[in-house]
C-alpha cells in the first residue's frame, strides 16, 4: 500500500523524531511511504484567523502536492482535519471544490489510518513508563477520532496508561489563540498541566504537534519533569524509554 506522508510544518521543523517514527511504523506494516517534497503548511493559522483568501494558495499547493497520492497520512489530527476544510474554503469554485473533496476522502490521521485502514491494534511496541494521554480537540471533536489512540496505546508492552482527568478540555493552544489571547491560554494550559500532574505520570503522550508544543513549552518553562511525547514515538518504541 502506498502512503503519502503529510508531515505538517510543525512536524517538519520541530518534531522530526515523531515524523521518523511515523515512517518506520507505516513501513513496519507494509506501507511504501512517499514524501511529496512540494508540501508546505496546510494554512490553518490563516484560515482560523479569518484570512480565507490568503489561505487559498497554501490549500492549492497542498491539493496539488497530494493529487496523485493513494492515501494521505498525517501525524496530527488538527492538520488532517484542515484538509477536510478545503471543500468549504473553495465552496462555489467547482474545480477546486471537487479536488478538495477527493483529498478529504483519502486523508487520515496516523492512528486512525493504523486502526481503520491497516486494521492494526498492536504495533508490537514496548515502552516502559507511566503515561497519560491528551486527547486533542480537533482530532476528537472535528475529525471524530476518539478511540484509535487508546486502542493502540493499551497494547504497548510495559506502558501504564492513566486516564487524564477532564481530558476533553482544550489545552489552550488554539493556533493563533495562544498568542492573541495569551493570558487566557496560559490559564488553560496550567489547568491542563495540573490535571496531568494529578495522574503522577512521567510521560504525557499526544497526537498533535500544536498541543504538544503548547503543553510541553509550558512544562519546560515551569521546569517540571514530565516528558512530552508524540504517540508515533511511543508506538514505534522498542523498549528503549
Amino acid at each position: 500500500m502506498k502512503v503519502s506522508l503529510f508531515i505538517t510544518c510543525i512536524g517538519d521543523i520541530f518534531y522530526v523524531n515523531a515524523g521518523k517514527a511515523s515512517v518506520e511504523l507505516l513501513e513496519r506494516f507494509g506501507c511504501e511511504v512517499d514524501f511529496p517534497v512540494t508540501q508546505t503548511c496546510c494554512g490553518q493559522p490563516a484560515y482560523n484567523s479569518g484570512y480565507h483568501e490568503k489561505t487559498k494558495a497554501a490549500a492549492i499547493n497542498m491539493i496539488n502536492s497530494f493529487e496523485h497520492a493513494e492515501y494521505v497520512v498525517c501525524p496530527s489530527g488538527s492538520c488532517a482535519y484542515m484538509f477536510h476544510e478545503y471543500e468549504s474554503l473553495f465552496k462555489g469554485d467547482s474545480k477546486w471544490e471537487e479536488k478538495a473533496g477527493k483529498l478529504k476522502q483519502k486523508t487520515f490521521e496516523l492512528t486512525q489510518f493504523l486502526t481503520e485502514i491497516l486494521g492494526v491494534e498492536d504495533t508490537g511496541a514496548e515502552f516502559h513508563g507511566k503515561a497519560t494521554y491528551h486527547s486533542s480537540c480537533h482530532m476528537t471533536r472535528l475529525l471524530g477520532v476518539t478511540e484509535a489512540p487508546f486502542k493502540l496505546l493499551r497494547n504497548v508492552k510495559g506502558l501504564e496508561l492513566i486516564d487524564l482527568p477532564n481530558r476533553h478540555d482544550c489545552c489552550g493552544f488554539g493556533g493563533t489563540f495562544a498568542v492573541k489571547m495569551s493570558s487566557i491560554s496560559e490559564q488553560m494550559v496550567d489547568e491542563k498541566i495540573e490535571h496531568v500532574e494529578e495522574t503522577k505520570a512521567n510521560f504525557l503522550i499526544g497526537a498533535d504537534g500544536g498541543c504538544l508544543m503548547n503543553i510541553g513549552g509550558r512544562i519546560q518553562r515551569n521546569e517540571k519533569s514530565i516528558k512530552v511525547m508524540h504517540i508515533a514515538e511511543v508506538l514505534n518504541s522498542r523498549g528503549e524509554a
Binding site: C9, V37, T38, T40, C41, A46, Y51, N61, S65
Partner: peptide, 14 residues
C-alpha cells in the same frame, strides 16, 4: 498573514 500566505503557498519559499 500575507507573508504566511505567500510562504505556505510556495514550496520554494517555504
Amino acid at each position: 498573514m500575507s507573508g504566511f500566505g505567500i510562504m505556505a503557498g510556495s514550496s520554494r519559499l517555504f
